[in-house]
């Protein structure tokens, strides 16, 4: 099973839930924990450990100057403005290139070939027993986060239990993380912001047909706005985490709350059981 922990709004406690859920379950089973928030990966902060890394590459054109006639066809074709053809040379902007390979196809002289350029990396570590952490990291100033997410998830394929920390938002990075997942847990907070963004993110899961439930974080007892919405959309509330300074401090310090607060571990294991019981989850 691949379970995605998502939120829409940032900072609602996605990483807190993913880290503590994984650590709770690891007492009994093997888990791959995948950080798909490749712009700002934070799971590794809860699990400091030695890492091995592999680069994430994208295709970029390489120009053979001996063949190139500066005809300009490649620059004309490129939809992203990554190639400018001057009288005496080609200028190429790798960070604008999407790696589509179109320039190679349109070059009448066969002067363009594709080579690899790193845009990020995937880090692997085994921070505790039965947990493998796979972290996607996009390099600073790069923009192709869905590509880095795709490569990160490819390394986890086939494992029986994968827990993914999703990127915030509702656009392509979230879609890339959610597509093909077996279940999704949205972490939200009982504020108008949390509700607004939950509606949007739940819409994405609906479009993709992924069984989902909700965790309400920082509850102050009055969660009506979230509960009403969940009821109207048939989204079960799977867990409520109280607003608690101790939890906030633990999370901010990179500590696991299951190790700081009594009874939390059992509650995360219950959360997982409820996810497994969601209609549509195998």
């Amino acid at each position: 099973m691949r379970l995605v922990i998502a939120s829409g709004k940032g900072g609602t406690g996605k990483t807190l839930v993913a880290a503590n859920l994984a650590a709770s379950l690891a007492a009994e089973r093997e888990i791959v924990l995948a950080d798909c928030d490749v712009e700002e990966p934070n799971l590794h902060l809860f699990f400091p450990s030695e890492e091995e890394t592999l680069p994430v590459m994208t295709d970029v054109p390489e120009f053979d100057n001996s063949r190139c006639t500066k005809c300009g066809k490649c620059g004309e074709f490129c939809q992203y403005g990554a190639i400018v053809v001057l009288k005496d040379r080609i200028m190429f902007f790798p960070e604008m290139c999407h790696g589509c390979g179109g320039c190679e196809i349109v070059c009448p002289e066969g002067a363009i070939s594709l080579k690899k350029r790193p845009i990020g990396h995937v880090a692997f570590s085994a921070p505790r027993e039965r947990i493998i952490l796979v972290t996607g990291v996009m390099n600073e100033r790069e923009v192709m986060s869905p590509h880095v997410i795709r490569e990160t998830l490819a390394y986890t394929a086939g494992h029986p239990l994968i827990i993914c920390d999703a990127p915030p938002g509702t656009a392509c990075p979230l879609v890339e993380t959610l597509e093909g997942a077996d279940a999704c847990v949205f972490v939200t907070e009982p504020t108008p912001f949390g509700l607004h963004d939950l509606k949007l993110a739940a819409g994405v899961a609906e479009v993709l047909g992924i069984p989902s439930g909700v965790v309400i974080n920082r509850s102050m007892g009055d969660d009506e706005i979230i509960r009403e919405f969940c009821q109207s959309r048939n989204l079960p509330v799977l867990m409520v985490i109280p607003f608690d300074r101790e939890i906030a401090v633990a999370a901010n310090s990179g500590d696991l709350v299951i190790e700081k607060i009594q009874g939390m571990k059992t509650r995360f294991i219950e959360l997982f059981e409820k996810v497994r019981a969601l209609p549509g989850v195998e």
């Binding site: 620059g75 490129c78 992203y80 403005g81 990554a82 190639i83 400018v84 053809v85 001057l86 200028m91 902007f93 604008m96």
Partner: peptide, 14 residues
Amino acid sequence: AAGGVGPRAAQTVI
């Protein structure tokens, strides 16, 4: 356009 406007504008001027 979505992006890459600078280089493409430069190409026009050149």
